[in-house]
Design a binder for these strands. Structure first.
Ligand code: SF4
Ligand code: SF4
Lengths: 169, 169
DNA sequence: CCAAATAGCACTGATTTGGTGCGCAATCAT
DNA sequence: ATGATTGCGCACCAAATCAGTGCTATTTGG
């Protein structure tokens, strides 16, 4: 129900872990020894992340994975997009927000819904999706990795979202 | 992949439709005659929405459903929450954001994950989820129904999110 | 009474998701 | 060289979720 998949979570954990190991290749073993993650599944996730261009891989005894870009240059959106396709809050048209940093093609099935022309919520729902997408885009790996976790607060939207959340609504 | 279910979409369409029919009971038939929605399924959705306290129902020949509150007093979050459980971007602890307007209990399974203590992304991921949740909360049925659709732009977060979205990232 | 509408319950089929098995290929330490 | 370690490719399974349906009972207006 509107939640990230386990695969994505594992991927994010791995990515965050690598933020603390800059410049070195870290193996899947190390990661799933640190956290309780099914080794085999994590391998699959890392593979995907690698093919998406977020990670560099190196085989062999001292092999592993390494962040390609600086932690602040990779967004959660890129990870999510790689692991579960471009986020959409509906089956509607492909995201107008083209993440130019992503190396993978947009694999949205176009406007899959058969009532696109008459749908009264199409446009507003897309705007909503773009809002979510924007949030994910604005959160970098650095934000996620922050120990004391300024996280979302680090970007201009953070405080607003936090305060908005406290509204009685 | 991080998207609303069909049920939720149908529910939102129905709700928006009722915004234009204030004060009268509108039948499921009318709605699924207007839009291409499986009648039987829509009925199920409306039932749920009704039990959640968002709609008032009336049986019999001239029966149907009607919005309980004003359109600006019902949020998309409430609809989503009723139709697919409280939004969460992870299997983590129940949402700290208690929507006091909701009449249904929070049915989160608590902290389902078995690595909650050691998980490095738990806190930031929750903050992310709260951001999304906040977005949904801030969008009212009125926003959704707006013909020219100011929608998300109508609330203080809208413009920021919109502009943020145009950043090269 | 009859037609129209919600309420309740159970159920099927398709899709997604979490997770695994296994052999192959590359690489490094010894 | 050789074996241990690591990633790669591909196929596969089981559980959960989701879209959608059937049928019957109950309420209500005409
Ligand atoms: S057109 Fe409407 S019902 Fe169809 S996918 Fe888009 S928002 Fe959903
Ligand atoms: S503790 Fe970490 S891995 Fe577990 S559900 Fe929460 S965010 Fe996901």
């Amino acid at each position: 129900m509107l939640q990230l998949t386990k695969r994505t979570e594992y991927g994010l954990i791995a990515l965050v872990h690598m933020v603390d190991r800059p410049g070195v290749f870290v193996s899947a073993r190390e990661i799933c020894d640190t956290y309780k993650v099914p080794r085999r599944l994590l391998a699959e996730v890392l593979k995907t992340l690698s093919k998406a261009g977020l990670l560099a891989s190196h085989r062999g005894a001292t092999g592993g994975y390494m962040l390609v870009r600086e932690p602040e240059l990779t967004s959660v959106a890129q990870a999510v997009s790689a692991l579960e396709g471009n986020p959409a809050s509906s089956s509607c048209s492909p995201s107008p927000v083209d993440d130019s940093n992503s190396l993978f093609p947009i694999l949205d099935s176009g406007s899959g819904c058969d009532m696109s022309p008459t749908c009264p919520i199409k446009t507003p729902i897309q705007r909503l999706r773009d809002g979510i997408w924007s949030l994910l885009q604005q959160t970098s790996l650095r934000d996620l990795a922050a120990p004391t976790a300024a996280a979302v607060n680090a970007n201009p939207l953070g405080e607003l979202l936090q305060s908005a959340q406290t509204l009685t609504y």
